[in-house]
Design a protein around this nucleic acid. Sequence first.
DNA 1: TGAATATATGAATAAGTGTTCATATATCGG
DNA 2: CCGATATATGAACACTTATTCATATATTCA
Lengths: 124, 124
Amino acid sequence: MIKYDICETCECSHKDKVSKAKSEALDDEVIYDLADVFKVFGDSTRIKILYALFNQEMCVGDLVEALDMTQSAISHQLRVLRQNDLVKFRKEGKAVIYSLDDEHVSILLQQGLCHILHKNKYGE
Amino acid sequence: MIKYDICETCECSHKDKVSKAKSEALDDEVIYDLADVFKVFGDSTRIKILYALFNQEMCVGDLVEALDMTQSAISHQLRVLRQNDLVKFRKEGKAVIYSLDDEHVSILLQQGLCHILHKNKYGE
DNA sequence: TGAATATATGAATAAGTGTTCATATATCGG
DNA sequence: CCGATATATGAACACTTATTCATATATTCA
């Protein structure tokens, strides 16, 4: 592996930057958890579910009809959302009613929206 | 496909909820763009790169050494970040120096961090 | 121009992921 | 208990994706 300790062609102080980056790096565990959270948001079906639940709590059957997908597909994705603590649920008779777990989820959703809308591809 | 228009066993007003969800749903294009942005954040290598650039601008070689990965792997991921407008770059001699594209990126990073730290797995 | 450095990229492969299909579990009414 | 409804889940398959290897492009210096 080539070393980049010295470089005369640009003024970046490589050693400084590299050691700064290394010392300030996040723990691997944090990195993986962070990537995992974003990974869960990174699927259109799950985004649709989360956005629907952002507006109101809904049972599985409602989501199936609202998103026009199979019950199995919705259920599988709800499991992913559950396992990552992005949604919570309660049982009411035969129905299982889902809602967003905490406000962090809606904040992330909103920030994501804000980010893409800022690129003014859609507006005006 | 089974219809869930009427349900006597729980008090959720399904028709209302379903039609509300349908009418308030985001455009498909927005959904896919949103999922794509999160997808880009959803990889540990890219998170490491973004977090390093969150603290300071860096050239490719610096990132290679700081993250202890091959130049090719870093370069491929920088391309993904570039194509999704999460990083910008300038050339300086032979070096290409990368930095975060706008503050939306750091806000999303911070919100993600905030979300996982809030689950107090790591703290105190 | 030629050698060396810095970065980018195409192809291939291995690992991961979302949906479907079939089936299982759970709850309620009769 | 039995049938119907509501949800969950395992296996299989198609598709995507991250890394590696080899190589290409670009820039600087002699």
